[in-house]
């Protein structure tokens, strides 16, 4: 078995409400797996349980055959999982490069050092990461004045700082122009290929989902209701009913990705 991530009957209840209901799936090495579904279907809850922001009510999560259920986010990160957020989370009082240096300081165990000047540490490595996401010429700009799309790239650079085996991306292209969406997803796909990483992402833009994922899972009311490639998902009547609708809202051509 070379599953990078595996969940077993993952369940989360809030009071009487079942937000995530017995979700089991497996993510293979090098795979780009999309998780789609209506708002409130449980995608974010599911994500937060994988990363440790939420404790699962029951069920298990394995990373490369090691159980990580119940670990705190920072412990999950140390096991080799990076994540980007739906609403970007960057350090607004720092420069672009300092944002990335921060992740490197953590990765190299420098956080509890009181004497060196932080902005001089791991600078070259941070520049390389910024180069990877195309932000190197903005390295010394103040994060708070950047455009949204650029913040998303910084987040990606932060998430890649410790060369994770798995990347979790929560609506990576939300709030971007179509051209930017394509660029970001192609960049992600390239990194996945080059570094042998795996990606699980949620997304509402069906053009992005159908073009850039290897496989798609659909959630509704906490349950996985369908799984398959783009064509299978598009033609699934149940998915059309609860989520996709009549198909007016995405490009009709499906790029083949196989």
């Amino acid at each position: 078995m070379n599953g990078v991530l595996k969940t077993q009957r993952l369940t989360k209840t809030f009071g009487g409400l079942i937000a995530v209901d017995n979700v089991s799936f497996e993510l293979q090495k090098g795979e780009l797996l999309a998780l789609i579904g209506p708002n409130g279907a449980g995608k974010s809850t599911c994500f937060n349980m994988l990363m440790g922001q939420l404790k699962a009510t029951s069920g298990k999560v394995y990373l490369a055959n090691e159980e990580i259920t119940g670990l705190a986010p920072r412990q999950v990160w140390r096991k080799g999982v990076g994540r980007t957020f739906q609403i970007t989370a960057t350090y607004s009082s720092m420069t672009v490069i300092e944002n990335v240096q921060m992740a490197l300081l953590s990765h190299y165990g420098d956080i509890l050092r009181f004497l060196p000047r932080a902005h001089l540490l791991h600078r070259d490595e941070a520049l390389n990461l910024l180069d990877l996401v195309g932000m190197v010429n903005q390295a010394d700009r103040h994060c708070a004045v950047l455009a949204y799309g650029d913040l998303k790239r910084i987040e990606l650079a932060i998430a890649l700082a410790h060369s994770p085996m798995l990347l979790l991306m929560d609506e990576p292209t939300a709030g971007m122009a179509p051209k930017e969406r394509v660029d970001l997803m192609e960049l992600t796909a390239k990194i996945v290929r080059d570094q042998g990483m795996s990606v699980l992402f949620t997304e509402h833009d069906m053009d992005v989902v159908f073009t850039h994922s290897h496989r798609i899972m659909v959630m509704n009311r906490g349950k996985l209701i369908a799984e398959g490639d783009a064509a299978e998902i598009r033609n699934n009547p149940l998915v059309q009913e609860v989520y996709l609708g009549g198909g007016t809202l995405f490009t009709s051509e499906v790029a083949s990705h196989a």
Binding site: T90, S93, M94, M102, H119, E155
Partner: peptide, 16 residues
Amino acid sequence: SPFGYALRAARDSQRQ
């Protein structure tokens, strides 16, 4: 220092 930066990081975005 790295500690001071981490303190600011925790303030700016605890999530990140």
